[in-house]
Amino acid sequence: MSADAAGDAGTGAFHDRLRAFEGKTAGPAEVAPDEVNQAMIRHMCEALGDENPVYVDPEAAARSVHGEVVAPPTMLQVWTMRGLRPRPPDDGGNARDDLYAMLDDAGFTGVVATDCRQTYHREVHLGDRLRVVTTVESVSPEKHTALGIGHFVTTRMSYLDAADEPVGDMLFRVLKFRPGTGRVAPSGTGSA
């Protein structure tokens, strides 16, 4: 009997291996590559057409309660996003990335986000340098979903400032699925 990941995917043994990641922190805190800055805020606001002046107009922001420009709260996770930069080779391992890699190797290469809960503990100012600590919260048993056969992975992100004070937190759930195993066409009713 095959003992490799593809061979036992879908069995309790594979789920047990996935669940071994639960409660593990995904490596050291990831520090934002840049301080919270006006250019990135402006790009986000212009992409959406958000005209709230406290995000982009220093004079209006100075007259507001903030006294200065602040970032939209929902940009919480943007500051620490890795983009396409590879993980540092000496960071001691990353439970979330290793878990995703185990799922990829077993054929669950598709990924869609399904659930997100963000809580905003304080406003974010220009010059803040945020960091995020990520923990693997849970991995579901194998599920048959409209998109395909897969596992739901839930992670918790705690965003901290330079003084390690909480700025916000996020629960984030994705479905890692096997492309082509869905019950229905993945188009939904959209994108005619």
């Binding site: 959406l48 943007v78 869609v112 492309p179």
Partner: peptide, 29 residues
Amino acid sequence: RNGLADIFLNTPNQAAWFERFITDWTGPF
């Protein structure tokens, strides 16, 4: 590779759209 219909709106973008929708109604306070 992903077997989806097309590229799709990402999570932080959806969060930002919800925020814009809600704060357009509340105003900046």
